[in-house]
Amino acid sequence: MKKYNYLTSRLLILLMCAACLSCSKNDDPQPDPDPAPDEEFYYKLHRVENLAMEADDDNPTEAKPAIYFSLETGQEVPNAQSKTMRWDLSFSGLYNSFLGGNNGTNSTNFGYGGAGKGGILILEKPFDEVTEVPNDSQFKSGSGIIGTDDAGAFGEGIGWYLYDFGGTILGDGTTEKTHVAYALGSSLTTNDGTVIPARTVIVKTPRGDIAKIKMISCYEDAFTPDEWFKDTPHMFFTFEYVVIPAGAKHFEIKP
């Protein structure tokens, strides 16, 4: 009986070895790598002019549906695709003027539930001087995070634009200069001599790429403060940006 057990165990070992030796091929398919953007995409300066948002001055407090934008394609993405990774930047809230990234883990994000791992932050630094990628922990994952600056009316922290409600902060006090939104892509000096440094928005895309964005204007075909008035057609966003791949730490523009 003892011999029987001994032989049986040897037999089993042999069988297992045979099974292992004869099954060496790995049949487990690996997922496709993420489609790599065109080489012309990274480290290049991109410019978007007059990205149109719905605006209704008769109902200024009525927020319109959010707009989703792909930095890679330079195009708007349909609202139904909000929980996909096809967009990088959202425009929401009043006059669609509040920016956010695409993040699936934050329940306040339009991408909640999706696979996006993006975020957003803003720096009080000119676009050209932003060379280092901020620490990952500084990115905020909600939607509608970056909007009105505290230097103007209805400020909500450091924002990408200054809202001059009465036309007296940056304007000349005339009616035409009331209710003007001044993009802070470049620094501005208020009527009382205060210098407001330029702002640069940093976006982490849902796939982890990093973009720095210079917000230039929200008025149609008007890109400098002297062209912005209450009745200048709005909201038409103009901005410039550079995207670097996930993992890269330094912003630069390559020829």
């Binding site: 997922p31 496709d32 139904a80 996909t84 539930g113």
Partner: peptide, 11 residues
């Protein structure tokens, strides 16, 4: 997941 669309990855 509250998805209104899916965006599959296909191998």
């Amino acid at each position: 997941y509250q998805f209104s669309v899916i965006d599959p990855e296909i191998k």
